[in-house]
Design a protein around this nucleic acid. Structure first.
Lengths: 184, 184
DNA sequence: CCGGAATAGTTGAATCTTCATCCATGTTGA
DNA sequence: TCAACATGGATGAAGATTCAACTATTCCGG
């Protein structure tokens, strides 16, 4: 397990070397010094509700998409491409849009390429670059699947909330997204 | 890719056999017949905010835990065990509590066992059963790591929301969780 | 009490993700 | 102009997750 590849393996968070401290070590020290601010009951409920809902939802949507031989990740890539000009995106933009590493996307696109859903095209302007492009089959697939996927999202999520709740949700997550994107 | 292992591979959602239809096929037919109810702008914003926030959050928390050689999944298992009587849980209860398949949990526990965080004990009452038990090292680990993890959750999520928003969040997700659990 | 079905959990192979590294191209500044 | 460096992306191995068996035990109807 991940224990083995700990970047701090064997030194347990305490600096052994001279007096130099990294910012990470200062953060750890700060937490070690203070009484932990545990979550209140309400905070815990909200946090666990988020986690639980997400896991169940992701699982259900994956199941529903499986009927069409797609994963949620496949679907999101197809959507992004289908919404882009000329049904194409640069690999790194697509990686950013779908929030995954370039490496992961590269493997992912290779698989989708093998399945005939997308194709790669090298970029003429910047010859390092690659475009992922929707194929005919990819375009047909997303058009066929999208209504079903939207129906799933409604059935298992959207339609269970009021408009106010949806607005609240977006308002609540917005700053979280902004904050986390600033850290990348 | 998953395209290959489609459970409906090659027949594209249309029944070929006589007149029998599965419930799944009826659902597909229902969507095919109706005009899709696409998401409104607001609905899409809420849905995408949820997805984006979750991905970024999960990634950040994983990074923060990596400092201690743990994944979020490791952490959740340790928490569950540490909150249980005698620091032990039956495998299937633990799988349910952490919302993962028995198979996945079994592999997961094997890895954590190799890392010395937990141990397996066979259940005496029901000799098919197995307990996952926290080891001394597992207990020490969760005690050391928990304050840091809570600090991360606060910093990247809880402390960015108001109390009202947290309450709203829980209220919004509650029915989703209930609904999805009823489907499993 | 027996035989079949259900339950608890494990296993190995296949798939997917992460990590580290690498190659090719582009950018910068001396 | 050219040597460093940065960027875009690909790759292979290692780690994690899923899928489809499979074993061992328990439960249940007759």
């Amino acid at each position: 397990m991940s224990q083995e590849r700990s970047r701090h393996g064997g030194r347990n968070g305490q600096s052994v070397a001279a007096s130099s401290t990294t910012s990470e070590e200062r953060v750890i020290a700060a937490v070690n010094d203070e009484e932990p601010r545990w979550l209140s009951t309400m905070e815990q409920r909200a946090w666990r509700a988020h986690l639980t809902a997400h896991k169940l939802l992701e699982h259900r949507l994956d199941r529903d998409l499986q009927t069409f031989g797609l994963s949620v990740n496949d679907y999101e890539i197809l959507v992004n491409l289908s919404e882009s000009a000329e049904h194409r995106m640069r690999m790194s933009d697509l990686a950013d849009a779908t929030i995954q590493s370039r490496s992961r996307l590269s493997h992912q696109i290779s698989r989708m390429e093998a399945a005939g859903l997308v194709a790669r095209e090298t970029c003429v302007d910047d010859r390092r670059g690659t475009f992922a492009v929707l194929t005919e089959h990819g375009w047909a697939t997303i058009q066929q699947v999208a209504p079903h996927h939207v129906a799933s999202v409604r059935q298992h999520f959207i339609d269970l909330l009021t408009d106010d709740q949806l607005r609240e949700l977006e308002a609540a997550y917005s700053p979280v997204v902004t904050h986390l994107k600033s850290l990348r």
